[in-house]
Design a binder for these strands. Structure first.
Length: 298
DNA sequence: GGCCAGGTCCAAT
DNA sequence: ATTGGACATGGC
């Protein structure tokens, strides 16, 4: 027996398949089977109606962030033709509210990997150590040796450390911390540095300003906003937070999926013509801010 | 067959 | 502060 919900500005497909989340599969052409912690449910969308089994409407609203004001968010980040195209192409994509431990484990697993393999690694860990279909709790995750046997490679050691610290409660206080402090707390975990920490902040803690810089984002940001020149991850993040504002994380996600589908086009056209001046202006403001900050330092 | 993948860590500039 | 190599495994 399925329940349903009227949804606006939401695409189940784009939300699940954009690379932010790995614990789903297709039960059929339109039906997704989704696992989040101890919850396993089916979900499908028919136009403006979302159908689901085994979970409450409240859970669905929360998990899919149906409370986010997507029109306002996309209006805020819609600063140039590339972002505009990305938003149009993936209209309805929302940042999920994942479980912090699962999200941390998933993005530690993602290090120097690829989506099919990450998905398989997570399934393997669930099958080997989880109870039922639940991803193993921190206390249930196997030893480094057993994780290596599951082909986690050098990530095995990181996962063991992450489980130990998560089991000790590291992830529980982050909700109430500032973004900066939460990031620092996450980075205490060996195997969690800037990129993975930003993924967890964005995908699990709803810190929509977090801007994970991975190889794709680095490539596309340099191409579009830095005239093809190198820029450190720090500069990219700094630029993004000024340029896109408090919803920069959403911009990151749209850019991520869009660039993977349209890279050739981006590489060919480079800087968005109509907004080159705006970008240059902002980039110089960012530089000025940095210089001033440096000058004021004792 | 070498190169790179939703990186991180460590050591050497 | 920035840069290069190691780290496991897999897909092209």
């Amino acid at each position: 027996m399925a329940n349903s919900l009227v949804v606006e500005d939401f695409s189940l497909r784009h939300t699940l398949e954009c690379g932010q989340f790995f614990r789903w599969n297709r039960a059929s052409e339109d039906v997704y089977e989704v696992q989040r912690k101890d919850v396993s449910f089916r979900v499908w969308q028919e136009g403006g109606r979302l159908y689901f089994t085994d979970v409450s409407a409240g859970f669905v609203k929360q998990f899919f962030s149906l409370d986010h004001d997507l029109p306002a968010i996309t209006r805020a980040i819609d600063r140039d033709p590339w972002m505009h195209a990305a938003i149009r192409r993936y209209w309805g994509l929302r940042i999920l509210r994942q479980d912090p431990w699962e999200c941390t484990a998933a993005f530690v697993t993602s290090i120097a990997s690829n989506i099919p393999r990450i998905t398989r690694n997570i399934e393997d860990m669930t099958g080997a150590f989880g109870i039922g279909r639940q991803f193993p709790l921190p206390e249930e995750l196997g030893s480094e040796q057993r994780l290596r046997a599951l082909r986690l490679g050098f990530r095995a050691k990181y996962l063991v450390d992450a489980a130990r610290l998560a089991g000790a409660g590291l992830l529980e206080d982050i909700e109430s911390m500032s973004e900066r402090d939460g990031r620092d707390a996450l980075m205490v975990i060996p195997g969690v540095a800037e990129k993975v920490a930003d993924c967890v902040l964005l995908y699990a803690y709803g810190r929509l300003g977090a801007f994970p810089v991975d190889t794709w984002i680095r490539k596309v940001m340099r191409q579009i906003y830095f005239e093809g020149r190198r820029a450190s991850d720090e500069r990219i993040r700094h630029f993004a937070s000024h340029y896109f504002g408090r919803y920069a994380g959403y911009a990151q996600q749209y850019l991520y999926v869009y660039s993977r589908e349209h890279w050739d086009e981006i590489a060919a056209k480079s800087v968005p013509k109509s907004d080159t001046a705006v970008i240059r202006d902002l980039a110089s403001k960012v530089m000025t801010t940095r210089v001033l900050a440096r000058a004021q330092r004792p």
